[in-house]
């Protein structure tokens, strides 16, 4: 089973919650990414995320001046985070159920980000689609349900 860490994007750009949206746009363009992770203020602080969609929906759509709006006003914090060992199918299910398109991959530290695009372009779901039952059997090979019988 492929895991989040196998398909995540390791190059992450971060930004402070107090930065302006104009600075966030510049960083998105410069780093050629579609999402920024918002830096934690202390080790117990949750992670936040800022996406292209946040900027378009909440700033551009209203003609607000990105130089006057701050990241903390439009970011999502706390955000959904993904464990690096989570199976890709579970990441997809988590995304579908929560309506998110990208999330930081975190295990103690920030390891990367994972997006719909990563799932589509790097995972093996076309060659090896996995149902919940198959995932369960992979995880618990000794379970009675997982037994294979020769026909």
């Amino acid at each position: 089973m492929m895991k989040a860490k196998d398909i995540m994007t390791q190059a992450v750009a971060t930004i402070s919650g107090s930065a302006t949206v104009a600075e966030a746009v510049a960083s998105l363009k410069e780093n050629q990414v579609r999402t920024l992770v918002v830096e934690r203020r202390h080790p117990d602080d949750p992670y936040g995320i800022l996406s292209e969609t946040d900027i378009i929906y909440k700033v551009a759509a209203y003609g607000k001046d990105p130089k006057q709006v701050r990241v903390y006003e439009i970011m999502t914090k706390p955000c959904v985070v993904v464990n690096p060992d989570l199976g890709v199918e579970y990441v997809a299910r988590l995304f579908a159920q929560t309506g998110v398109h990208q999330a930081p991959v975190v295990s103690g530290d920030l390891l990367g980000t994972i997006s719909i695009h990563d799932i589509l372009t790097k995972s093996d779901f076309v060659e090896k689609p996995k149902t919940y039952f198959e995932l369960y059997c992979e995880e618990f090979p000794d379970a009675p349900e997982a037994r294979m019988y020769d026909a």
Binding site: V88, E89, R93, F95, I119, F125, T131, Y132, L135
Partner: peptide, 17 residues
Amino acid sequence: TETDIVYKVVAYGHDPK
């Protein structure tokens, strides 16, 4: 879109073929 494919196919382990 990519989102349609991930939310409706990958998330449920449906066979894209």
